[in-house]
């Protein structure tokens, strides 16, 4: 169990992924480059106004010129996403556990949670600003209401899909309800919980941007809104690009988390 053997094991597992990536990503990269070149050409040939559709080079220039302030905004938004995501996952797990463990409370809570999903949560943003001001709190609140649901739902589905004969086995040796919960149901739910967590990661990005749209003095959402009032469309696109990068980073972070938490999940063990 030396560190070295662990490292080589990790490397040997990563190498085929890198090799496969070449084949897997190449067509997408070619299409992306072709699209950007066509876009640049179209803007130049048809002389499209920069505040309607800026050329990729104009966006790049804006990105470089505004780099320090854009980075600062990116950090603010990333912080909101990370904090909001962690709170959403924690609350989502807690609600799922309460629903499964305490039958009566679960039957009270579950329909309300589902009902609450019908509220257009984006529309709650102005109310959160009213209640919590312009700082971090309203963004966290908004991310929470948007992102906790897939976590709760996926974990519930995982905990409730334990095979009945396995429960019979546990009952036959006199296992308590909390032993069944923590030794069987919770670990059994982890693969599905991680799928819900990845959805929550994506929704957290949306929550942060919407929160900033509704009222903020910083962050990429604020930059987008401010730049569009200035008709600085190139900067809007530059900020959009950074939001997308954030989204991708958070999604893959959740995917790495999945590999760490449930290396035994069916999707990994098939190979």
């Amino acid at each position: 169990m030396s560190d070295q053997s662990l490292n080589t094991a990790a490397e040997s597992r990563l190498t085929p992924i890198l090799v496969a990536a070449n084949d897997r990503w190449l067509p997408a990269i070619i299409l992306l480059v072709a699209t950007v070149v066509a876009w640049e050409a179209a803007v130049r040939i048809f002389d499209i106004s920069a505040f309607i559709v800026p050329a990729p080079t104009a966006i790049a220039r804006s990105l470089i010129d505004q780099w320090p302030s854009l980075m600062q905004a990116t950090l603010v938004t990333a912080g909101e996403i990370l904090f909001g995501f962690i709170v959403s996952v924690a609350v989502g797990i807690a609600i799922a556990l309460v629903i499964v463990r305490f039958d009566w409370l679960g039957r009270a809570l579950y329909p309300l949670v589902v009902l609450f999903q019908n509220v257009p949560k984006v529309a709650l943003a102005p109310i959160f600003i009213l209640w919590f001001g312009y700082g971090l709190a309203p963004k966290i609140g908004l991310i929470l209401v948007i992102a906790f649901f897939p976590v709760t739902l996926s974990m519930l589905a995982g905990m409730q899909s334990v095979d009945r004969s396995l429960l019979s086995l546990m009952n036959s040796v006199g296992a308590s309800q909390s032993q069944i919960l923590f030794r069987i149901r919770v670990p059994h739910s982890l693969p599905q919980l991680m799928a819900g967590t990845k959805i929550a990661a994506t929704l957290s990005v949306i929550g942060a941007i919407v929160g900033e749209f509704a009222g903020a003095q910083d962050g990429l959402g604020y930059v987008i809104q401010f730049a569009s009032t200035q008709l600085d469309t190139a900067q809007v696109f530059a900020a959009l690009l950074l939001v997308s990068v954030l989204g991708i980073v958070f999604y893959y972070a959740a995917e790495i988390l999945e590999r760490v938490v449930v290396p035994w999940a069916p999707k990994f063990s098939r190979a």
Binding site: D163, S165, L169, M170, V173, G174, A175, I184, L190, W264
Partner: peptide, 27 residues
């Protein structure tokens, strides 16, 4: 009483030896 069903129902996050002692650990 020892029970065996049609499906083995092993816990995928535990290895064979830990699965073999799983019920005993609760009993």
């Amino acid at each position: 009483i020892g029970l065996v069903f049609q499906e083995a129902n092993l816990l995928p996050w535990k290895n064979a030896v830990d699965n073999a002692s799983m019920l005993l650990s609760i009993a």
